[in-house]
């Protein structure tokens, strides 16, 4: 959503507030501050759900579920640690619950036939090749276990350091690095297999 200039000015006044400060205000009853947190993180969360294999419409619903869950469990927010880690922990639970609810329906990477068609039209074109690679990568990700896929998608977010990733996973920082490394290695093996098949 594009805000008109003055509206932007109004929100700019609150821009200096950290995520933690805003969430603490939500906790103390200023529910509207959740709107600012939503504006800050909606795209990241949408990308997270989408890259985990959910279709765009489901991803949008899941983003909303995360924020509604933040409201519901605002009392449990301690303000310790990074807001992003708390948010992604909630996002993981939302994704898990959604797929549990949709009755053991396996997360399927929806690679549409149009996407495949476009890629095979002209394999020499660089952008097409990139697109082909992206579809191949999505297929390779789909073959990974849910846990490893989630790990790689989480580790791709620039704002999330390994320390925070470890906080989300509930392990040490070193262990988080090793786990991402192994997931990455497995992804590469699957990717190469798909590429040569």
């Amino acid at each position: 959503m594009v805000y008109p200039e003055n509206k932007q000015e109004n929100t700019d006044n609150l821009d200096h507030l950290s995520d933690n400060a805003l969430m603490s205000e939500v906790k103390s009853g200023d529910l509207d501050k959740l709107g600012l947190l939503y504006e800050r993180h909606k795209k990241t969360l949408f990308g997270f759900f989408y890259n985990l294999g959910n279709n765009p419409s489901v991803s949008e619903d899941l983003v909303q579920n995360v924020f509604m869950r933040m409201l519901k469990y605002r009392g449990s927010y301690t303000g310790k640690g990074m807001f992003g880690a708390w948010m992604f922990r909630m996002a993981r639970n939302v994704n898990y619950d959604h797929h549990k609810k949709t009755a053991k329906e396996k997360i399927s990477w929806q690679v549409s036939s149009e996407e495949l068609g476009e890629a095979s039209d002209d394999g020499f074109n660089e952008s097409m090749e990139r697109e082909g690679n992206s579809i191949l990568l999505k297929r390779a990700l789909a073959k990974l276990s849910d846990e490893k896929r989630e790990l790689l998608i989480l580790s791709k977010y620039k704002g999330l350091k390994f320390g925070e990733l470890a906080e989300i996973l509930g392990c040490t920082e070193g262990a988080a690095k090793v786990r991402v490394h192994r997931a990455l290695k497995e992804l590469r093996t699957i990717f190469l297999e798909l590429e040569t098949s």
Binding site: G35, K42, G47, E60, V63, Q64, L71, S134
Partner: peptide
């Protein structure tokens, strides 16, 4: 490094305005 850069460049479409609408409605 090669596969890491591919994962880093994974993109996603933009969410629609409908998402904003239903969120603010719920809020």
């Amino acid at each position: 490094m090669n596969i890491w850069s591919k994962v880093e460049n994974l993109d996603a479409p933009k969410p629609t305005a409908k998402m904003d609408e239903s969120f603010f409605d719920a809020l």
